[in-house]
Nucleic acid binder design. Structure first.
Length: 506
RNA sequence: GGGCGUGUAGCUCAAUGGCAGAGCAGUGGCCUUUUAAGCCAUUGGUUGAAGGUUCGAGUCCUUCCACGCUCACCA
């Protein structure tokens, strides 16, 4: 493919040739730097406050983000990872040739290096008085931002890259011109670090289990299928970590967790990306109530680490993650919001009628558990703005969760909600191999031929369980959704660096 | 998959079916403390793609592509 250059790009290519003609390498191999931009400004301010006479000398680097040539004087801003600093170039120091070079062959977006002394301009901005400068990397394509300025240390953009498609497809450009996007991903990183911290402090060991699996399981989702050529074997990308992590508890680890990627071959919308990041943990000798307490502490800790507060602003609301969270039994929650008592509707037929009576359009062929789930997501879920645990679920939608002592129709399970969407899912884990085998078989019947959510029976998992699996609590949390909460974004794509988009012919 | 909407210069956006424009960016020039610098001049378009209606289409119609919102789907 031959690259088609725009007029603007052709101009820059010509400038690059002129640089070469002057013996200037537009892409030198090495850079020098004595301070980050922020460090240089701090160093100057410290010296200034101490009344030191010796000048603060600095060699700084960064991308050219603004230029104001004024004849014999030029002001510019460069930006590095720490922020921006203003450059001041004057013919007195540099001579007319260098001034000309900078004004005509350097462009916005170029990476440059500049050396000089720090000083304060008449308007009070700490600035580098440039004694020499170098090209570090010529930018051929102009960044998609027309102009911006710094006011009181804040970058004000007068025309910014806004088109979502371009922002996601060219995330590098989005990050380069939109500092608030960089902040989103810093916060995401802090959140993940806080989660690791929290797990490590509670003596959990971080492990890694297979992404490529001969069988998939642990969640109800369609998998991606791939193939190993040399082994002539079809493999699945994992849809959860659950079955492998619980094998590790059989092996004698008491507390394990994994942070990694799951892949689900399903619809894409503002809370679903085909690949997404999960935290799962398994905790021997604990139950779902202990996990509930632990979850509140964990999320509160993350909010505090990321935002310095347990009260999180989200889409105009204040979400208060201070423990304890509200706790609502699923049955009671549905009585309160839908005025349907699921105990009154022991069959799928009865559930369908009850749901129709309140104006829903349930799938008449769905099993009872799926209907209850549908009812919940339609009626209860949208009301769960403040953090809430919904607990005690019907057994038939929770094939890996342990039944209630004395009530085999219900299981010890909870889901955590906030801002109207599901954040996490946990249960007391089923550890009875005979019951588990029965559930797998049951599930195979419920999800009859043609149902994409039907799952293969994992014999090896049952074998592991037959060696003896201690009682335990298990937990899964969608880290992308947590990142949405921590960054006040209603769309999952805003918190994934390279979200999946349909491919496009260029 | 359905519905609604969007797609025009590098970016942000205008344009009743009647000459495709503005601001910024770019280019040339003036300007020795500016910060959306200012002033003068100036370049820049396959209007997402392909068809159609019309004397004439950015605008109306059809199909397609991509994106957004929404519904459906989504233990």
């Amino acid at each position: 493919m031959t690259t088609k250059y725009s007029k603007l790009e052709q101009t820059r290519l010509e400038k690059m040739e002129q640089l070469r003609a002057q013996g200037i390498d537009p892409y030198p191999t090495r850079a020098q730097r004595t301070h980050t931009n922020l460090e240089a400004i701090r160093a100057f301010e410290t010296a200034e406050q101490a009344g030191e006479q010796a000048p603060v000398k600095a060699t700084l680097v960064g991308r050219l983000r603004s230029m104001r040539p004024m004849g014999k004087v030029t002001f510019a801003h460069i930006e590095d990872g720490s922020g921006r600093v203003q450059l001041f170039l004057r013919a007195n120091e540099l001579g007319p040739e260098k001034m000309d070079l900078f004004a005509h062959l350097f462009d916005l977006g170029d990476f440059v290096q500049a050396n000089g002394e720090m000083f304060r301009t008449r308007t009070g901005e700490v600035t580098l008085r440039v004694e020499s400068f170098e090209m570090l990397a010529k930018a051929i394509s102009p960044l998609p931002a027309a102009k911006d300025q710094v006011v009181d240390g804040e970058v004000v953009q007068h025309a910014t890259l806004a088109e979502p498609e371009l922002r996601y497809r060219q995330r590098y450009a989005d990050l380069a011109v939109n500092p608030e996007v960089r902040l989103i991903f810093r916060r995401r990183a802090y959140a993940i670090r806080a989660l690791r911290d929290f797990m490590d402090r509670h003596d959990f060991i971080e492990v890694e289990t297979p992404v490529l699996q001969p069988l998939y399981g642990g969640a109800a989702a369609r998998p991606f299928i791939t193939h190993h050529n040399q082994l002539k074997q079809d493999l699945f990308l994992r849809i959860s970590f659950e079955l492998y992590l619980k094998r590790l508890i059989v092996g004698g680890f008491e507390r394990v967790y994994e942070i990694g990627r799951d892949f689900r071959n399903e619809g894409v919308d503002r809370t679903h990306n085909p690949e997404f990041t999960m935290l799962e943990f398994y905790w021997a000798y604990a139950d779902y109530l202990q996990v509930m307490d632990f979850t509140e502490q964990m999320v509160a800790f993350v909010a505090e680490q990321v935002l310095g507060s347990r009260i999180v602003p989200f889409q105009g609301q204040q979400i208060d993650f201070n423990p304890p969270w509200r706790r609502v039994q699923l049955r009671q929650g549905l009585i309160d919001t839908a005025e349907i008592d699921i105990e009154d509707h022991p069959t799928a037929e009865s559930m369908v009628q009850a749901m129709r009576a309140i104006g829903l359009q349930p799938d008449p062929k769905a099993p009872r558990g799926k209907l209850i789930e549908k009812l919940m997501s339609e009626v209860l879920e949208p009301t769960l703005i403040q953090p809430t645990f919904v607990y005690d679920y019907p057994r038939d939608i929770s094939p890996l969760a342990k039944s209630f002592p004395g009530d085999p129709r219900m299981v010890e399970r909870f889901e955590g909600y906030a801002a109207g969407f599901e954040l996490c899912n946990a249960f007391t884990e089923l550890n009875d191999p005979m019951d588990q085998e029965a559930r797998f078989i049951e599930m195979g019947q419920d999800y009859a031929e043609g149902d994409d959510d039907r799952h293969p029976l994992d014999e090896d998992y049952l074998r592991a369980m037959r060696y003896g699996m201690p009682p335990m609590g298990g937990f899964g949390l969608g880290i992308d959704r947590l990142a949405m909460l921590m960054t006040d974004n209603a769309n999952i794509r805003e918190v994934i660096l390279f979200p999946h988009l349909r491919s496009r012919e260029e």
